[in-house]
């Protein structure tokens, strides 16, 4: 329970939570990004394990996934890269159900443990199909973060909030990952609905693109996930320093909301 414990501790210190997303295997030495974003103020890091057909992802993450796959990244090479690192924050992988099923649920869960990963996020494994993976993950001590959407009914939302471990991933809008010009209207509602149902930290993600949007989002949630806005900077040629600078800016904007 290292992810949830860490996030709860940070929250109880009054700190808005920040979890950046990094595509695993994006370039040689990509794991430098993990250390850099943590040093810049991330509370945990999501590592994307690229899948050939990422239906929850928009163009930015699709491009990054293709780039990593073209370099030969596989679930096991990415976990191998991560193993033994002292990042200084909990790690979660985000990937699609097929890669987990292909490896086998038990084998995948123990591979995560061996690599020092604490949690998993599987956007195409909703509550109804969650059982077999949930059992394997629980047995291995892997926390599984479930997603809550603006369309989720109250009855489902209660079950999602109860079953989700690590945090509750509140999807801030109707749509796939990618930068947006402004924070969507449903984000406040879905964040507040989740917070009304659970004590587990609630993070808003999908479409949160700027420090200003992040600051606005944490009025309705315990924190934010930032993915495409970070990855786009890397795809545009920015290196680890550009990535760290961006996360530092977001951290500063979040901290100002708490002061």
């Amino acid at each position: 329970m290292r992810l949830e414990e860490t996030l709860r501790d940070a929250r109880s210190g009054g700190r808005p939570l920040l979890v950046p997303y990094v595509t695993g295997g994006l370039y040689d030495g990509w794991t430098e990004l993990l250390e850099a974003v943590v040093a810049a103020g991330a509370d945990a890091v999501e590592i994307g394990i690229p899948f050939s057909d990422p239906v929850m992802d928009g163009p930015t993450i699709q491009t990054a996934s293709q780039q990593a796959l073209a370099r030969g990244a596989t679930p096991m090479t990415i976990l191998g890269d991560v193993e033994g690192l002292a990042v200084g924050a909990p790690l979660a992988v985000m990937t699609y159900a097929n890669l987990v099923m292909h490896a086998g649920y038990d084998r995948f869960a123990s591979a995560l443990v061996d690599a020092g990963v604490d949690a998993a996020i599987l956007p195409d494994l909703p509550l109804d199909e969650f059982g077999p993976w949930g059992s394997a993950a629980d047995a291995a001590g892997i926390e599984t973060v479930l997603l809550a959407a603006p369309t989720t009914t109250d009855e489902r939302l209660a079950r999602i909030c109860e079953r989700s471990k690590g945090f509750v991933y509140a999807v801030s809008l109707l749509g796939v990952t990618g930068e947006r010009g402004s924070l969507s209207e449903p984000s406040s509602t879905v964040g507040e609905r989740c917070r009304g149902l659970t004590d587990t930290p609630v993070l808003l993600g999908v479409g949160i693109s700027t420090p200003e949007q992040a600051a606005e989002a944490v009025r309705h949630a315990d924190g934010v996930v930032i993915g495409s806005a970070l990855i786009r900077r890397l795809l545009d040629g920015g290196g680890v320093d550009v990535a760290a600078d961006f996360i530092r800016e977001v951290r500063r904007a979040l901290d100002e909301t708490a002061s």
């Binding site: 956007p123 909703p126 997603l147």
Partner: peptide, 20 residues
């Protein structure tokens, strides 16, 4: 069992689509 034919089928979609 949520659209199972033998062990195949099911509903493996993002949460957003489940209510629809």
């Amino acid at each position: 069992d949520l659209g199972r034919f033998g062990g195949f089928g099911g509903r493996f979609v993002p949460e957003t689509l489940v209510p629809a």
